[in-house]
Simulated scan of single mutants.
Amino acid sequence: MNSQDQRIQAHNNWPKREEFKAERAFRDRLASKGGDAPFKPISLGKDTDKTYHVCIGHFLDALEALPNRPDQFFDHCFRVIDESARPLFNKQGIKGIVQGLAGKLLSASNDDWQAIVDELGAHIPLMTCRYLAKRMLQVHGSTNDLEKQLSGRVEKCLTKKTYDAFAAKFGTDPANSCIERAASFLKLYLSGKPASKSRGSAYKLLDLHDPKNVPSYQQRIEFLLSVLLFTMRNERAHGGVLSAFRTSKGTLERYESYYFSMLCTYVFAAGILSLRGFGGVSSALIRKCATDNILLQKKFFA
């Protein structure tokens, strides 16, 4: 049975649950790992602030979605970002939050947040980079209002000239090999490490062997927040994408990608709680959370 027919059958047979291919694979992996999800939350302290408890409520809803729905965990954590960061970004809205949070986090605790973004950047799944590459190439030069919003955020992170070079180099051929090469570039870019050697490319702005082209910590955090996570949030909120694990393309790799993205949203949500002084949440605690959970994910999805 194809996935289209299976989705219709699953709807019509409710409340009987229909298990899809990716869900089966994840269930098997979960069983082989003793049933434990590859995630461990930080320990939150007591606080009487109303906003703090609204955020904890979202975290509880997020945790109830695990282990099977990391995409729903992601949604709840983004609500924490939206709710808790508003006083830090007066009247700037969610776009201002995702574009400005990097500076505030690094100013508050530079060493810890540099370590956190190094950890996240070093372990971003290649599938997540493929998603980024595909979206970035799709919207470059678009006149569609929604797509222009994404391309504008990419330009702010990369600069317009670098984004134009990215599209020129990787967007000339829609073949999968082109997306793979673009994804590999983004994986290296987000690692923050220079390339081992120059490839003599005609696109000098994309030569990561040149230290001038290696992104700063602020650029990398903003890229994760504004380009990756905010794009995922918008697509899910607007309802224009298929259910993450109930498609013919659903795989364990997709679960890994969503577990990574949900960890990123959780880490940045916790970062805002630390900026607000809520519940004794510290950058050191968040740093340990990021390190521990990356290790859990590596062991689980290896």
Rank of each mutant, 00 (worst) to 15 (best):
A202L: 09
L88I: 06
T162G: 01
Y258D: 06
E155D: 15
A270N: 12
K21E: 15
S216D: 11
G34D: 06
D207K: 05
K21C: 02
L252G: 08
K169T: 01
A195V: 06
E256G: 08
A202G: 14
K16S: 15
R130M: 09
R27K: 14
F73A: 03
I116A: 07
I221T: 06
S283V: 06
L106V: 07
P215V: 13
G271Y: 05
Q92M: 12
R220L: 14
T162R: 15
S191W: 09
P125M: 11
K249N: 04
D49N: 10
L150D: 04
F260E: 04
Q149D: 11
I8R: 15
F245N: 10
H76V: 00
G239W: 12
R254K: 14
Q149G: 14
F39H: 06
A22D: 05
W14V: 00
C289I: 07
P15V: 08
A108C: 00
Y258N: 03
L88A: 11
M232G: 06
L126K: 14
S32Y: 01
I56S: 01
S216V: 12
V98R: 11
A65L: 01
L150V: 03
A269I: 02
L188D: 07
A37F: 05
C157R: 07
V54I: 01
A122C: 09
A182F: 08
S151Y: 07
Q92T: 12
Q218S: 15
V117C: 07
T143I: 09
D210Y: 08
A202H: 05
A65P: 02
Q149K: 09
R153T: 02
R130D: 02
I294S: 03
I179F: 04
P125I: 10
N12C: 11
G239K: 07
E18N: 13
Q297H: 08
L206F: 04
T51E: 05
A244T: 13
S43M: 00
D210A: 09
Q114M: 10
V54L: 02
V154Q: 09
F59A: 12
